[in-house]
Nucleic acid binder design. Structure first.
Length: 895
DNA sequence: TAGTTCACG
DNA sequence: ACGTACGTGAACTAC
């Protein structure tokens, strides 16, 4: 088929108008990068985070949209025609943070340098300017795209006008066409103002009709078409609360609709011709970027400024040979060491290159035999020779495999970066560098990914790369350490994370002995039982299917066997445990499926799964991720040794395969009892909870007694204790009545009463919960007893769910995180003690609130005293810490 | 690669 | 009116 396109139309590109809501995008840009606020400061001390994010977004949008015309509209001031109509309009809106205020003029300046017109109009909001210009553009036959962070602007969408709303920060947008509005809300763009009028707007602070939210408003509009239509027929509605509210709040609703309506006839004195997009003013823009310290944007412009050159240029380095070693060992300043490996798991992957920066000289080699040089070996192991690295734990583990000890690290850029901000993924030095505005390829960019992943053929390229890594560590050292100090996190780093990285390295290197033959036996046993159950399930289902597929299982249970659907997931029927538990009584096949699932999980993940990780030394060497969790806990991978089954005996048998190194040794474990609740008692200062721990009461029974209003714990039934225990857990997680009701199978109302009486009994806890959320709102982060930080930008979210989640996180993180701090201190002290006392015992594993050791039998009596005393004295809280311990022939027995 | 499920604290 | 417990990792299926 041939498309005939008239010549004229083919030749002229359709004109495209880009309209940006300057205020709302700036706001979003600011909060999207709120966690790096202090990292983005220009030479003259002005914050630049919003500027940076705005510009990033601009790059993407300009590329995407390729506009011929562009305009960024700003609000002119607080008073507008809307505040005249309704004095409280935007009444409770928090005032713009000063750190953003100072950036707004710069944003306008930058936009102009980028060839984009900016405009504001007295008495009107940016929305109105955009509305007006979008109609002008449309009537001239232009395609119009609007960029905003405010969903209300979707009322402007038409066939020619697309509204792109920022989601998650500013670099991603969701595009609204009339069809998409319809799909998403079930109403037309024109009806959005009616909807807003009916439901009101909390953030702009205008009221709607009482008890009418989005859902109700949409339902009403689908029935009556518009607010006016609705009020014409309101008398015909049958008597209901809704009808009453509609009638009572009619005036408010009509006013709110007016407030929500964007004025598309504002007296904007702009001609479309003036909006022509001219592109960057190169010369001025470079100066501007330099003033703002925007290195990455400068690099994008292909500009050879001196500063950039220094950073991007190939680094001059010489061969790391014995001559170089002679120089290195005699330097007294800190020196930077890079040990480069290739492969996922550093316990098995080879070292492929080394680099050392020494007094501004760079030395590098891919010839690993230099590690046999005795002088270098001694220098690496010398604690008094100060070193900088990225990932101390990995470096220690790698060098250990090549027969070298490694000590003396004072700066681990990975750890510092994690302490400064847990939010982004910081396991890659390139990404950290990029975060600080420096240009260093990350691992994926350098080595490639998937099938293309490979070490470069040219050794020079590799050596240059690792020298650049060393260079960036030096460049960022001062800034990052200063920031650490400013956050009052230097002792968290010096006394906890850095020493801990050495403890973890030795735990990983030691590994834990696992009896492969035992796992093999279990695997065989499970395989037999699985095929039995499988047969029975097929029989009862009347056909064969994949039991592991939730999809196929759903069809069998809910369509073939017609069992009631309890819960749905995004993709279909839920077949999770809590659902199956409820269906158990309806069909005998359900219990069999539960059994199958359980055994199949234990078999595939543990019995079979763990065998793959047993190394030739008969041991499993996990990797502890020290810089991953948002709370400060560790995590364990390849394999995860922090989730070995224990709750059900079937799975618990797996622990019998975890054994000590030789016959006259045992496994020894020690765990904290209720650390998190004790931490809560401490940081909340709640007297009732503190008393319970000081007196060493059964905390859950004691809670039950209090919330059920009993006189003594003797009256507490097991069921009451169970409920109280769940409530205590709920409190730690940042409780909601719904969550608690689901967990202990009571109604939401009852759960709410539980929580009320809990807070009455523990008023200090209530106060803590309120205060910590307030703290998070004011400071943008929360912290643990050791000043570990977690930034919570979502605490300002307009979205109810996202904001609530951030609030629960604010409550939970100081608790979970402080508990993590405590055991970390205990681990460091423990390792030190074992050495001081000349014990052979090895610390092998950590599982959040417990430590697992292997020890000669003769040392067990010593450990039984020593370990609990080290653990309970790790930190001094207002309540005592309690520690339990056990030992036996395997991890199973050490319970 | 996303979604579901389930193992642990 | 909204739709929920906090923090993880791994196996498996299905797109």
């Amino acid at each position: 088929m041939v498309n005939f396109i008239p010549m004229g139309e083919k030749m002229t590109k359709n004109k495209k108008l880009l309209l940006i809501d300057g205020n709302s995008v700036s706001f979003r840009a600011f909060f999207a990068m709120h966690n790096v606020l202090d990292k983005f400061v220009s030479g003259d001390g002005i914050h630049t985070n919003a500027l940076y994010a705005f510009n990033n977004m601009l790059d993407i949008i300009l590329k995407d949209e390729d506009p011929t015309h562009a305009l960024v509209a700003f609000d002119a001031g607080k008073t507008t025609f809307r505040t005249e109509m309704f004095s409280d309009y935007k009444g409770t809106r928090a005032k713009t943070p000063p750190e953003l205020m100072e950036q707004l003029p710069l944003i306008q300046e930058m936009l102009n340098l980028r060839g984009i017109k900016t405009y504001q109009l007295k008495n009107y909001e940016a929305d109105d300017i955009i509305g007006t210009m979008s109609r002008k553009g449309q009537s001239e036959g232009m395609d119009v795209t609007i960029i905003t962070g405010d969903r209300d602007l979707t009322q402007l969408t038409t066939d020619k006008v697309t509204v792109r709303v920022n989601v998650k920060g500013v670099t991603e947008t969701e595009a609204y066409t009339p069809e998409h509005v319809k799909e998403k809300l079930g109403i037309t763009p024109e009806q959005i103002i009616d909807m807003k009028g009916l439901m009101g707007d909390t953030s702009d602070h205008y009221p709607g009709v009482e008890k009418v939210g989005e859902k109700t408003a949409i339902k009403l509009l689908n029935e009556y078409g518009s607010m006016e239509g609705l009020y014409e027929h309101v008398d015909e509605m049958r008597k209901s609360k809704l009808k009453e509210h509609l009638i009572n709040d009619k005036d408010q609703a009509l006013l709110s609709k007016k407030l929500a309506t964007i004025n598309c006839d504002a007296p904007v004195e702009l001609k479309l011709g003036e909006l022509e997009y001219r592109g960057d003013n190169q010369e001025q823009l470079i100066k501007f970027y330099q003033r703002m310290d925007f290195k990455s944007f400068l690099e994008k412009m292909d500009v050879d400024t001196e500063e950039v050159k220094e950073e991007m240029a190939d680094i001059k380095f010489s061969e790391l040979n014995s001559d170089a070693v002679d120089k290195i060992v005699n330097v007294d300043k800190p020196q930077t060491v890079i040990v480069e490996s290739f492969g996922e798991n550093y316990h098995i992957s080879p070292i492929i290159g080394l680099a050392i920066e020494s007094d501004k000289e760079y030395y590098s080699t891919t010839d690993i035999s230099i590690l046999e040089n005795d002088k270098l070996k001694a220098w690496l192991a010398d604690d008094s020779k100060e070193k900088y690295v990225f990932d101390n734990k990995k470096t220690v583990a790698l060098l250990n495999r090549y027969g070298c000890e490694f000590a003396g690290v004072s700066f681990d850029m990975l750890l510092v970066s994690y302490l400064l901000d847990t939010n982004d993924n910081k396991t890659d030095i390139g990404l950290v560098a990029q975060n600080y505005g420096h240009n260093l390829p990350n691992e994926e960019e350098f080595y490639g990914k998937g099938v293309k992943k490979a070490v470069p053929d040219d050794d020079q390229v590799l050596m240059n790369f690792i020298c650049q890594k060393a260079h960036i560590i030096n460049v960022l050292h001062d800034t990052m350490m200063a920031e650490l100090k400013k956050n009052d996190q230097d002792s968290l780093y010096d006394e906890i994370e850095l020493p801990l990285s050495n403890v973890l390295a030795s735990m990983e290197i030691k590994g834990v002995k696992v009896d492969a033959s035992r796992l093999k036996e279990m695997q065989n046993d499970f395989a037999g039982r699985l095929s039995d159950i499988e047969k029975q399930i097929y029989e009862e289902a009347g056909e064969e299917f994949n039991i592991n597929s939730p999809k196929q299982l759903g069809v069998i249970l809910f369509e073939k066997l017609k069992l009631p659907v309890i819960k749905k997931t995004k993709t279909g029927y839920s077949t999770a445990v809590d659902v199956l538990e409820k269906l158990k009584s309806k069909s005998p096949v359900v219990q069999k499926i539960l059994d199958y699932r359980q055994i199949s999980k234990i078999n595939s993940t543990y019995a079979v799964g763990l065998q793959k990780f047993i190394q030739p030394d008969n041991r499993i060497h996990t990797i502890y991720q020290q810089t991953l969790t948002q709370t400060g806990r560790l995590s364990s991978i390849e394999p995860n040794l922090q989730n070995i089954p224990i709750r059900i005996d079937e799975g618990r048998q797996i622990r019998k395969a975890f054994v000590p190194q030789s016959e006259d040794w045992e496994m020894f474990s020690a765990d904290y009892s209720q650390v998190e609740l004790r931490v809560l008692a401490h940081i909340s200062g709640d007297e009732n909870m503190q008393e319970a721990f000081k007196e060493d009461y059964d905390i859950h029974a004691h809670t039950a007694m209090r919330i059920f209003g009993l006189d003594s714990t003797d009256e507490v039934t097991p069921d009451m204790r169970r409920k109280a225990k769940a409530t205590n857990f709920g409190i730690v997680y940042g409780i909601s009545d719904y969550g608690l009701s689901q967990n202990i199978g009571i109604t939401r109302k009852e759960a709410a009463q539980f929580i009320d009486s809990y807070f009455e009994q523990y008023p200090g806890v209530k106060k803590y919960m309120d205060d910590i959320v307030k703290f998070a709102r004011e400071n943008g982060y929360v912290e643990t007893i050791m000043h570990r930080r977690r930034y919570l930008p979502d605490i300002h979210s307009k979205n109810f769910n996202i904001r609530n989640f951030a609030q629960r996180t604010a409550m939970n993180t100081p608790i979970q995180g402080s508990a993590a701090d405590i055991i970390k201190v205990a681990m460091i002290n423990m390792q030190k003690k074992l050495k001081e006392e000349n014990l052979k015992t090895n610390l092998l594993l950590q599982v959040h609130d417990e430590m697992i050791f292997e020890a000669p039998k003769s040392e067990i009596p010593i450990l039984e005293k020593l370990v609990p005393s080290v653990m309970d004295s790790a930190v001094k809280l207002d309540v005592p810490l309690k520690v339990g311990s056990a030992h036996g022939y395997s991890w199973y027995e050490a319970k």
